Amino acid sequence: VGDKTLIDIAKILKQNSRTTDIVGRWGGEEFVVILPHTNLKSALEHANLLRAKIEAYSFEVIEKATSSFGVSCYLDGDSAKSILKRADDALYDAKNSGRNRVSAREEN
């Protein structure tokens, strides 16, 4: 059931992202969505769209699921590691704020 749910979530992410975006499984129950040439405001809007699509989807067996998103954008001097660290910190902010929400980190 868990694997099928993750496959469905991956499909939702892919079907609702641009062809230039990169969607991948990051580990366990986490995914990463890379949105090239996207500012923080647009990234937040996209994350909220994905969150709503997942919440509205009727999954087999479990029926409903929710998701939390951590969002960050490239800052001058960033490395992949520093961007992902901010996104991960934002994800934990979203989870600690009640889940099924989007949170962003704009600075280190």
Rank of each mutant, 00 (worst) to 15 (best):
D78P: 08
S42N: 15
A47T: 00
S82A: 04
H37L: 13
R25Y: 00
E45L: 14
H37W: 09
L75I: 09
E63I: 11
K64E: 11
G28M: 03
E29V: 10
I62D: 01
L91Y: 02
G77L: 04
E30T: 03
Y92G: 07
D78C: 09
V32S: 14
S82D: 08
F59I: 12
N39F: 00
V32P: 00
S67K: 07
G24I: 12
L50G: 10
I54A: 11
G27P: 11
K53F: 03
G28K: 10
A90D: 10
D78M: 05
L50E: 12
K53D: 03
D76C: 07
F69E: 05
G28A: 05
W26R: 13
D93T: 14
S72P: 02
A52D: 13
A90F: 02
L91V: 02
H46P: 02
F69W: 06
T38E: 07
A43L: 00
I22G: 11
E60D: 10
K53T: 00
S72V: 01
A90R: 01
S82Q: 09
K64S: 11
D76K: 14
E30L: 07
I83K: 09
G24C: 12
I34Q: 10
A52L: 08
A90L: 01
K53E: 11
G27T: 05
E45A: 15
I54F: 15
K81G: 08
F69M: 03
G70V: 08
A65F: 01
T66N: 04
S82N: 05
S72N: 01
K85G: 09
S68R: 04
N48P: 06
G27Y: 13
N48W: 00
W26K: 03
C73I: 15
A52Y: 10
V23N: 04
A65Q: 11
I83A: 10
E60V: 06
S42C: 09
H37S: 15
A52W: 00
Y74V: 08
G24T: 07
E55H: 12
L84F: 01
S82R: 10
D76V: 09
V61L: 04
L84V: 07
S68N: 01
A80G: 14
C73S: 14
I54N: 12
K64D: 03
R25L: 08
V71S: 04
E30V: 03
P36K: 08
Y57D: 09
E55M: 01
L40F: 02
N39W: 07
E45G: 10
G70Q: 03
N48H: 08
L50Y: 08
K53V: 05
A65E: 12
Y74L: 13
D88R: 04
V61N: 15
